[in-house]
């Protein structure tokens, strides 16, 4: 069936190597611009809220994805939240081992339906638990460029 001449020796198969040589520059969009400017300049998180659907979006959206109304008011929701879930990651993207495992967590920011996915800092694997309150740790203001890397991670709330 199918093709009538097939390879029958392990030395026959060959392959061709190549890549997709592209590079990208992404804008943050209307919502992202406001969100990351607030992190950079004020060290806080801004969310948008849809009163009709009773949803507070973090990261903010300029639209409510449920009713599609425009959301143009940003509210400061602070930087405290709770560990919604976490994982301990051992691998880099290229498949190599990390120098040391890291705790990646989804932080549900208080007063929102969303949050931030980032690392836990100053919390050991033994201490981490779902529901643990945590607070964002930012880079010093002068080092912040406006990006998710302006956040070092989330640490314990005193």
């Amino acid at each position: 069936m199918a093709i009538t001449e097939k390879m029958t020796k392990t030395t026959t198969p060959t392959h061709w190597e190549g890549d997709i040589p592209v590079r990208f520059v992404y804008t943050y969009g209307l919502a992202g611009e406001t969100f990351f400017r607030a992190i950079k300049d004020k060290g806080t998180f801004l969310a948008t809220r849809c009163d009709a659907c009773d949803v507070t979006f973090l990261p903010p959206k300029i639209y409510c994805d449920r009713c599609f109304e425009e959301l143009d008011k940003f509210v400061d929701v602070g930087t405290i939240g709770h560990v919604d879930t976490f994982t301990v990651t051992f691998k880099n993207m290229d498949g190599s081992d990390k120098a040391k495992p890291r705790i990646l967590a989804m932080i549900r920011i208080d007063g929102t339906d969303g949050g931030i996915i980032h690392y836990l800092e100053g919390i050991s694997i033994e201490e981490v638990a779902l529901g643990l309150p945590v607070k964002a740790i930012f880079k010093p203001k002068g080092q912040r460029k406006g990006g998710i890397e302006d956040i070092i991670g989330f640490g314990p709330v005193e």
Partner: peptide
């Protein structure tokens, strides 16, 4: 913007 810069798998 939000997730990829962390370079997690």
């Amino acid at each position: 913007v939000y997730n990829r810069p962390l370079r997690e798998t």
